[in-house]
Design a protein around this nucleic acid. Structure first.
Lengths: 224, 224, 224, 224
DNA sequence: TATGAATGAGCTTTCATTCAT
DNA sequence: GATGAATGAAAGCTCATTCAT
């Protein structure tokens, strides 16, 4: 029997939320549907009114953040021809996601292997697409003489690993604000790429002065 | 029935090996003892002649690399007072382990949560000890004016995340040699800490000229 | 797949019944859930829709008869001030239970040790309560000069052991009716307590003559 | 390798002892050979130098006390034609065994069902032989007008159940001495059989006066 | 005589999932 | 849309027992 006031869309959202939380806490295998259902306040079999299978649920959970990050970067990068600006945008998008959706991202890194072949391919495809966006930035910046890198792909991995590391230790109630974290990491990233320690700030300052409109966009995205 | 030539020590090693491989491939929860046993060529219950429980097995697997890395760094650092040298040593030890024992390290990062309370405490204790060794290096280097860092702890995490990232993509049969990977990452790390892109090489060169004995040690340890 | 006509309550009863039968036959440890389930006509895991664990099932099985016997005696004894009448009631309740629920009682005596601490405490608590009811009867009868006993507690144990012995040999299709068994044991018990061999009959006869109402009650309860 | 000073016979005794203890504590099914072996100080497979199987071990454990009790009674009864004396002897033998070998007897009552068919038959055969000895005493005493019983077999069961009950509560360090327990139960038994409360004492007194030699035997056996 | 190594059988229990209601 | 009842698969683990050494 349908509970008075129960609502499909609300329940669906609640399931997503509960799934993320439970999987983040226990891991995918240890996260039983019973537990997720209990968190939502329904019985396990009722989940199947909203999901096709446990694996499909995981797939949806893993795909979404990647799609969002890619979309957000692409939208922002459209009018940013400069590799330096693009890098800053990328870092901003990446870190904001990793700080706002720590659990989702955490799951994404931990539970990727649980996906079955076809879904696995889709998600790794998106991950490749995502990391290649960064590689492209680095290559263009290197070609333009802005960055000093030996191997663009390795640098991509190193940069991504560094930036993604935040979701292993960041806590909203911790001593560091998101802004501070973004600032520190942006600086670390810039230095990694061989820019003088203050380059990014200098550039930002220049940007603020010269191109307020474009800048606003970047601000939204990167919080930097 | 005991197979002719069966031998406890050999079997024990084989179990460790198989466990690492199977857990790295499927994840701890999905890695059934039956599967591990099959890989070894014995029946699942026979595992219990060598392990106390599945969780205890994981604990042993997770503890060992940490203990080894800590010991190796400590042994090497004893006669290296200079933060720069110590950093180089640390990076060398860390990367060598992550490249030689990719799977063990991978498991260490992925399956930590599967440990029960007491074991969990032990391993996270070791991880803290390990990361604090790096933090100390950074702090001392910063005090000495060698490194430019905003927050030693955050930088520690960022550096570790970056360095550990290799075990997500490194393959022995890939295009890059371990040496090359170490070299690239050492440079990236140095730049992250605000050293001019060539500082580490310069310093190394100077070291080789001035203090051949100490230098030899560091070379052994870091392969840098 | 749910069988047409399957019904929770019916299944629950069937499980209890099957459990009692299988445990009585094989003992608790040897009574596998698979076997119990097979007896019910379901798969073993389905049992867990009705039980929390095997041990909890045993606990329920052991607790129930004790609770019933205590309740039945208390209800009947309320209006029986005379120790002799109470003894007769107690014997009746005890034997009726032991003859009607031979298996349950048998399990109760055999499998008590299988219970875990907290459950064990509860059941032994009930057993103590039960045996102390008899001790009280004996003590009061002794004080009133009706019974001749040296040690009320030892006599309690001896009496209970004797009365409970029936479930080791009684078979419904045996040569002796329940009534006959109750009669014989009542006489044995009375003699054990030092009453002349015919006292109980005499008293009963007197009772029937003098107090038909109260007597009726006792008859119902004890079948004597 | 044989331990210095290890000795087959000693080990065998130790195994019996350990088996009795462990089985009495945990029950036969729950008493693993590992546990028994550990108690002895050897490894589980070493048990097989002394036992044929776990079930055979139980068989031996169950058979022995019965054989002993039967033998002891027969030896003592040989020169005791009087049913009253024989009863006293029987009670003495039975209680002494049940008080001295509480655990063995306890196991005998609890674990009988664990025996496989052939062994089961042997032991129940011995039990029948044993109980029939008592039945014969009762019948002869009844024929001689010494006892008042309705049904000799039921009385046998009742008497045995009562007498055996001691091993459920007797503790060597409890408040009651063995002598006291035997005295109380002898009296209870006599009263059960319709003898005046003091008959057994009177008879005993007479016996002591008239036939000191035979009496001594009975004393040894019954401790009464 | 003792045991390290191994095994086949079997246990309780959890799980994702199905389906009639 | 929700759920009680059921299930097949599979898990970690214990056990009695065997056998070469």
């Amino acid at each position: 029997m349908r509970l008075v006031g129960s609502n499909g869309e609300v329940t669906e959202k609640a399931i997503r939320r509960a799934a993320v939380e439970v999987i983040a806490e226990h891991g995918f295998e240890a996260a039983s549907l019973r537990l997720i259902a209990k968190e939502v306040g329904i019985q396990a079999p009722s989940l199947y009114n909203y999901i096709k299978s446990k694996e499909q649920l995981l797939f949806d959970l893993l795909k979404e953040p990647l799609v969002s990050m890619i979309a957000e970067y692409k939208a922002g990068a459209e009018h940013l021809p400069d590799p330096f600006d693009r890098l800053q945008l990328f870092i901003g998008v990446h870190l904001n996601f990793h700080l706002d959706f720590t659990q989702e991202v955490f799951i994404g890194n931990m539970e990727l292997r649980r996906l079955k072949r076809p879904h696995y391919k889709v998600v790794t495809g998106l991950r490749d697409e995502y990391s290649l966006m960064l590689t492209k930035i680095i290559e263009e910046g290197a070609k333009a003489g802005q960055f000093q890198v030996d191997d663009a792909r390795v640098t991509t991995f190193a940069l991504l690993a560094m930036l993604s590391g935040v979701c292993n230790w960041y806590r909203p109630d911790g001593p560091l604000s998101k802004d501070a974290i973004v600032r520190i990491h942006t600086k670390l990233a810039m230095q990694m790429l061989g820019l003088p320690a203050t380059a990014h700030t200098d550039k930002a300052v220049r940007d603020v002065a010269n191109e307020p409109k474009r800048r606003k966009r970047a601000v939204t995205a990167s919080v930097a």
